[in-house]
Design a protein around this nucleic acid. Structure first.
Lengths: 207, 207, 207, 207
DNA sequence: GATGAATGAGTTTTCATTCAT
DNA sequence: GATGAATGAAAACTCATTCAT
């Protein structure tokens, strides 16, 4: 780990920053950006307000950092899951499975990430939306490349462009996972997802 | 029009309310709930602040009314579009086409509607989220019933439950329309949509 | 009654004014000047706000009129009670008895009158305090004249100036009646009063 | 003084709080609760509005604290004055004298205290009236106990219950002191008071 | 370097008063 | 003459941010 080699002072800083973001995540995901005050974050994380401002220029910055890191963690996890196999179908199965797990285990992070994307304060949170979008777009490209490689190796029919298929798979998994996230009692967790993927694969696979 | 037969006073009231909501729509859709002040709405709509409060109990109420009416208008338009034909495939084509038109022509309304759904202030805007979700769920059922009737008449294969198919079609159209809404320059408007529907229909239609 | 001979229009006006003041009395006595709005008075009295302003220049004026008329009614009643006898002791007994009845039967008026006197908005309610004080002073003089005449007729000992005695009797009756007004369950109504007067008279009467 | 041993920070806090209350006392006593704004208090006390809210939850709370502390200071002073002697008559003389001095030297506090008692916003200032009344009742009991002990030691005749006598003496002193407070030019300060007490004592003392 | 007290701009909301109908 | 819709000044209160200790 890189942490090991950092001077103690630096390591400590990182630990504090992490703690601040963890507390912020809990609060923001629960109440939304405008219903959380810096004092609340300070109190719950047991830092002084001024210390928060040592780590983040202002409230917006703290929020941006949080959302972007949440986005990166999310996308990293998905990318890694796909990298675990060389087989395109297996990659997609991993994507769906791990995304499901991620929603289940990181509901707060997911909520903050999606609020940052399609959230309340549109153009206002200047920059954030754009940066999130870039990351999102980047990930969609990664996903698209799986479809592309599958097509090149003639494992998938070219029923649509790889990009379209990536957008489709991504939005479908989102939709079903949100159903579950918002009303777990009505939408039992993993089954829906497999159904989706199976249908898509059935249409895709060369007979 | 019912408007004609209302007493003049009532008609005038309605006109004012509409104007207030129209201005609010513009501001909220552009800047988000928390970045619009009542003074701003008053000024831009050329009413006094007090007058706004004659029509809406408070800021939250104004916002709720706006979002709910926007949701109703949206769903009504889609439902009507589907009612224009008795043929299930035609119904779905109408849904996709009209939804596309609606996104194109009512970007502000769409933004406010979706912000209200997956928006910023989760449990905070008590009631709103729940009401929106009810309406959304109701609409999904309407869409599902199209798939169901298609299946009963053996026009569609039963590749998934009608409810799943409705969620799928809805989220796919959202996804592609948002791509266009957010970056029209990269995503030429109507073509994507047809592609989606065609793929879905190909999988659905009995050969 | 003078009312009879007024033109109908005038009589009607007077009736309306009375109604406004009656409703205002109820509201002001219950909630205090600042917690009653002109709209509330208008609604409860079933007049339009504008009509209120036809009768009273503004809210302050309405309140002043109310308090002063309440003061006059109160003092008139007491003065009349004392006029019913020529005997000084009987006059004082009447004063005490009728004052007690008045507190019991016009709690709202009493509250408004005393709030206007020693109330919340000191110098602010410009003029009111002064006018009330004048009336109050005038009444104290009336009461003092009873003691004075009793002294001149050698029925009372000159244990203090008539003015001092008037102030004393007045404040004592106020004190005991307020005890009852504020906590009737702890302070049974009429007995206390008689005790007071008897003590005072015992000290006063020539043996 | 306990102040000496408090940490500097605490002492500073107390000093600020005192300053805020002092300025508030001046303003409230002059204009009444509803005619003083938090901004006004902030400006005159040279604190920021937000700082006021650090010390007092809201305007009502600030006012309540002010009135209750004023009441306590008043009653403490009177109680101490009576404790200075063991002789009942001397106790009463001290009470009257010190009360007079207190009215003379703390007119503002007295005004605020009495406004809080029989003041403007009856049931509205929920809690305040009740708390004031409790303190007032407590003090009346203290005063009554002087009469009671005087009776037990056969220094006073039992012309009335100790409680009645306490209410009487208290209301009489109030009445005469208010005359002076409101129109010092007409009512030279201390004489009236002695007269009152002397009359009362004459009636009370065993011959 | 950390702290948290102090700041005051900015927000929502109320309500006395006016005046066109 | 009565009405009550419209007005907007003014109030209470919050909270991101700063900076002296």
């Amino acid at each position: 780990m890189a942490d090991r080699v950092l001077p103690r002072r630096e390591r400590e800083k990182l630990r504090q920053r992490k703690e601040m973001l963890a507390v912020s995540l809990g609060l923001f995901s629960e109440k939304g950006y405008h219903n959380v005050s810096m004092h609340e974050i300070a109190e719950k994380s047991e830092f002084a307000v001024g210390t928060l401002y040592k780590f983040f220029k202002n409230k917006k910055d703290l929020y941006k950092a949080l959302v972007l890191e949440e986005a990166d963690r999310f996308h990293d996890r998905l990318t890694k899951a796909m990298d675990e196999s060389d087989d395109e179908i297996e990659k997609l199965r991993n994507f769906v499975r791990v995304k499901g797990e991620y929603f289940r285990d990181n509901a707060a992070g997911i909520r903050v990430y999606f609020a940052g994307t399609r959230g309340a304060d549109f153009n206002v949170m200047a920059g954030l939306t754009a940066q999130i979008r870039d990351r999102h777009y980047g990930f969609i490209q990664t996903l698209a490349s799986v479809f592309e490689s599958g097509m090149q190796r003639n494992r998938f029919k070219k029923i649509a462009t790889p990009y379209h298929l990536a957008v489709a798979l991504n939005s479908l998994t989102n939709a079903f996972l949100f159903l579950w996230l918002e009303a777990p009692e009505h939408h039992p967790y993993p089954n829906d997802l497999d159904i989706i993927l199976d249908i898509l694969l059935k249409g895709l696979k060369e007979s």
